[in-house]
């Protein structure tokens, strides 16, 4: 967790994850290049740099599509959470693939001429006054800048330094994706007479958009409507909460509370937001006596919302009371790390 920062935070699971990602990347590039070289030979061969440029471009787009599907898939089916666990390494790998594509394009199309290659990327290749002729390179360059900022700030160090801004910054993946869609739409798609690139682009947009929409509807169905009685809100029967699990309730516009049952007869309420990356604690479990985040395994003690030593994260806690098997929640949060009496089921 947070007691020290290392350049790359690896463990066995992350190494397996990264190995799969990079084996996938290498296999994709090898397949793409081999198929191209078998199909187009001799004087009909496609320039090797252009083959590589296309291979890295399509590989990167496929990677970003998968990355954007992981979040909603994990909300719909918890079995996809392990994909989310190391998504940042997947994202950085995607950035490196995109960077290789951009480097090849700048090297091959914009270099060796009378204009500075970077100036050429910005100034050449299109008509800024025309929608159909708008230079697609600019969309690609802007997308690359967005993904660079995200990759550069992906480390936990930046997560800790930037605080809540980190999440807002990393939501930029969606504008980045849209820029990439425009980059392909105004660029390579214009030259594709086979229909495969438009097909890939539309499939990606429909898949990413559809999964996000479906997961949003799925999450809204899981919301619990609360009945307010004086300063307490009625949550429901404690027997509806599975042991070592939680239910999540909304108490304000943006505020969600996770109510856990653990040790079979104890109840506690904490903020639903993990201090690490805003993971949904209510979808976590109690493991070894600690509330455990489903995203990266960050842990908090149920009694006070503090991470066990040597870790230092703290989350807000809430007061509960039990009347005739019905759980009531005080929606006013206590300061992060505040201890309060454990609610016991008798």
């Amino acid at each position: 967790m947070s007691h020290q920062f290392v350049p790359v935070n690896w463990n066995r699971r992350k190494r397996i994850y990264d190995l799969c990602v990079w084996v996938g990347i290498v296999a994709y590039i090898v397949i793409f290049v081999s198929v191209t070289n078998v199909r187009f030979q001799g004087e009909a061969s496609i320039t090797p740099v252009i083959v590589l440029m296309r291979a890295f471009a399509t590989c990167g787009f496929l990677m970003l599509t998968i990355i954007l599907c992981i979040g909603p898939l994990a909300r719909i089916d918890k079995r996809f959470l392990p994909l989310l666990y190391n998504r940042r390494h997947f994202g950085v790998s995607f950035f490196l693939v995109a960077l290789i594509h951009a480097g090849l394009a700048i090297f091959w199309y914009h270099s060796f001429g009378p204009i500075n290659p970077i100036v050429s990327v910005v100034t050449s290749g299109g008509d800024y006054q025309s929608l159909s002729g708008f230079p697609f390179q600019l969309f690609g360059l802007l997308a690359l800048l967005v993904f660079f900022v995200m990759a550069a700030t992906s480390h936990d160090y930046w997560n800790a330094v930037l605080g809540s801004s980190w999440k807002s910054l990393h939501v930029m993946v969606y504008p980045g994706y849209m820029l990439l869609v425009l980059h392909v739409g105004f660029g390579a798609m214009q030259e594709d007479y086979t229909g495969i690139l438009p097909g890939m682009l539309y499939a990606s947009v429909i898949l990413v958009g559809g999964l996000h929409l479906y997961s949003a509807l799925f999450a809204s169905k899981a919301q619990i409507t609360l009945e307010t009685l004086e300063n307490w809100v009625r949550v429901g029967n404690w027997q509806d909460i599975e042991n070592d699990h939680a239910i999540t309730v909304s108490v304000g516009d943006d505020e969600r509370v996770a109510i856990f049952r653990y040790d079979h007869n104890k109840l506690c309420a904490v903020s639903n937001v993990c201090q690490h990356q805003n993971g949904p604690l209510g979808e976590g479990r109690v493991i070894d006596g600690c509330i455990t985040c489903p995203w990266h395994g960050y842990q908090y003690r149920p009694e006070d919302g503090c991470s066990p030593p040597p870790f230092t994260e703290k989350i807000e806690t809430y007061q509960l009371k039990l009347e005739d098997n019905v759980v009531f929640l005080n929606p006013d949060p206590l300061p992060a790390g505040t201890s309060r009496p454990v609610t016991e089921i008798r």
Binding site: F40, T58, L62
Partner: peptide
Amino acid sequence: SGLIGFGIASMQS
């Protein structure tokens, strides 16, 4: 992923 790579590569003009 391999099939997508195969498909795009083999359908280039």
